[in-house]
Design a protein around this nucleic acid. Structure first.
Lengths: 185, 185
DNA sequence: TGACACGCCTAACGATATTAGGTATCTTCC
DNA sequence: GGAAGATACCTAATATCGTTAGGCGTGTCA
């Protein structure tokens, strides 16, 4: 029987595709193995189990998201940078719902935070510097902005907004609200 | 063998306690049955399965949350009402992490939204009326407020905020930011 | 007191994650 | 080019979970 030629990278990539297409809940070692033309136990040669797989997915997603946000913030400042980062954040979550969902898992106790997560915080901090924020004040504001973006994106992904009202307009309202709130801080 | 004297209500209540104490992920029919001194299949006399159980948990949580928010908003207006509702929202999520997590599940397609969810929206809308918002503008603002609160609470619950910085202060910053943002809308 | 409803049980099945151990393939070195 | 070792993949087996089918005993009501 020929080998499939897998690797931790290939397995994680396939898992990300499957999670994005079918939802993170549909990502099982059984479904992933089937997709890769392999038996479930064979995956243990590349990942340590389903928990490890989800952690890899999260790390992968965080790195991609950080890159997207940095690209969006580059060359922009103030409200323009905020809007660009917000749009990029939402776009990533929409394009990669599985990866974004994996990002939500709680880091295991003792597990150090992903380096990509710090990049994301740093990017938002840089945007907030354009609003004249620094120090703890900026850190609190970063949490606020992150909360707002995360909350919107999560609610949107799970259909939490019931009414038939434009989601794009709602998101624009949110970004404008953040902008006004940050100006006065 | 004596009967346990269960009911859909008792099963749901026990499930809520278990989910709040151990996390929604630890809520299985097996663990719930063990807690109730019963065998897993016996639960099917009261709930239709694990999915139905989670839906009941979500409905129960939504009703409780709606009541808490209404109580917080009662007799208050404007910024004071916003702050009170925000604090109540966060307090509920902290006190009932399992119920709040259950609330996040996507409603099944075709399943009508929970009536309690509409109460929550109505409460926030009433608060926003104090900011002079009405119509679609108010609905968009409601989504923004809900996103921010939900995002903060979710990130807090899963330890998503890495830095050793006061969460209370961060939440206060978020509420102040929302207040300023709503004033200018 | 009898009949009936039903709450709870055991038995069984399918899906999942995971471990143990075997086999065949690829690589590498002489 | 061929042997030796690493390892990618396999089958077999186990534990846990959700779920269905069917039986038994407890409660209630005529």
């Amino acid at each position: 029987m020929p080998r499939a030629g897998l690797s931790a990278q290939a397995v994680t990539d396939a898992a990300a595709e499957l999670a994005d297409a079918e939802g993170l809940g549909a990502l099982t070692l059984a479904s992933l193995a089937a997709r890769l033309g392999v038996r479930p136990p064979s995956l243990y040669a590349h990942v340590a189990g389903v928990e490890d797989l989800r952690a890899r997915l999260a790390a992968r997603g965080a790195a991609q998201l950080a890159a997207r946000l940095q690209a969006a913030a580059a060359g922009r400042a103030g409200p323009e940078a905020l809007a660009a980062v917000a749009v990029a954040y939402r776009a990533f979550a929409r394009e990669h719902p599985g990866a974004y969902a994996a990002l939500q898992r709680a880091p295991a106790p003792g597990e150090q935070a992903m380096p990509a997560a710090e990049e994301i915080v740093a990017t938002v901090l840089a945007v907030l510097a354009g609003y004249g924020l620094a120090g703890d004040e900026a850190l609190h504001a970063t949490r606020a902005v992150r909360s707002a973006l995360h909350g919107f994106v999560v609610l949107e992904a799970q259909g939490g907004f019931g009414l038939p009202l434009s989601l794009d307009d709602s998101f624009a309202t949110l970004v404008a609200l953040l902008d006004r709130g940050l100006r006065g801080a």
